[in-house]
């Protein structure tokens, strides 16, 4: 399970919100190309854990190393690290004042000095890849939830990240739109992208995950392959959780 060169290394992380312990001595490693799916009841700390990886949440103690860079080393520029980490949110968070295509080109043009022309071409390519090239000039408000989420995935990919983080990407979607988003994610996984996904979609976890992580009360209670996970779960809390949702 442990590898000499994990691309994400989380060690003994603690995080408190007031008196609530959101992360309680969490350690987790993710290898390049690996797909890790984090599941658990709501309030278990799984989204918090994901958000510590790109420091949208800071931690109280512990170590987080992404691609060899310690996030809490004062020498490390977190903005630089974030360009290597694509993030997809539950509520899409597309820039509302920008068209779909502009959402994709803003960061590459401003942060990586990609020429506008080139960024546009690459943007259209990515929109085609997620199946909505024809919506390039639409504003987010003119798109369905599923379409917005696909644009959001393309926006993250436009920065050529090494790792993609997904924070419950289908939880805010109408049921008939979940499939189109999962499809894009499965395709991405097949290309070899390193992915950390917080989700309730057990079908996705079974199909795509190399490892599944179960969290509850801020702790990682069980880690294993999908087959181990769904067929012979060990921890009683995981058993109860799986009984409830499957």
């Amino acid at each position: 399970m442990t590898n000499a060169n994990p691309i994400i290394k989380i060690e003994n992380v603690y995080k408190h919100f007031g008196r609530l312990t959101a992360l309680d001595n969490v350690s987790l490693e993710v290898n390049p190309g690996e797909k890790v799916v984090i599941i658990g009841p709501s309030g278990s700390g799984k989204s918090t854990l994901l958000r510590t990886i790109n420091q949208l949440e800071t931690i109280d103690s512990g170590t987080i190393i992404v691609d060899g860079q310690d996030l809490y080393d004062p020498q490390v520029d977190i903005n630089k690290v974030r360009t290597e980490l694509g993030m997809v949110f539950q509520s899409f968070n597309l820039f509302r004042h920008k068209t779909a295509l502009e959402n994709l080109t803003l960061a590459p043009v401003k942060l990586k000095n990609v020429p506008e022309q080139e960024a546009n071409e690459r943007g259209l390519e990515l929109l085609a890849k997620v199946g909505i090239r024809d919506k390039a000039d639409n504003y987010p408000a003119q798109l369905s939830g599923g379409q917005q989420q696909r644009v959001a995935i393309a926006r993250a990919l436009a920065m050529n990240p090494k790792i993609m983080l997904f924070d419950e990407p289908t939880s805010a979607l109408d049921p008939e739109m979940i499939g189109e988003v999962l499809e894009v994610m499965v395709a991405l996984a097949k290309e070899g992208m390193t992915m950390v996904v917080v989700t309730h979609e057990m079908g996705f976890a079974r199909e795509v995950a190399d490892r599944v992580v179960f969290m509850d009360m801020g702790q990682v209670l069980e880690v294993g392959t999908p087959s181990h996970f769904f067929e012979s779960p060990e921890h009683p809390r995981l058993k109860r959780f799986l009984e409830q949702i499957l």
């Binding site: 993030m87 968070n93 820039f95 960061a107």
Partner: peptide, 15 residues
């Protein structure tokens, strides 16, 4: 402006 806009922007690498 919704806080999600800030988070999305930061996550892309904007300061």
């Amino acid at each position: 402006v919704d806080n999600g806009q800030t988070e999305a922007s930061l996550s892309l690498g904007f300061n």
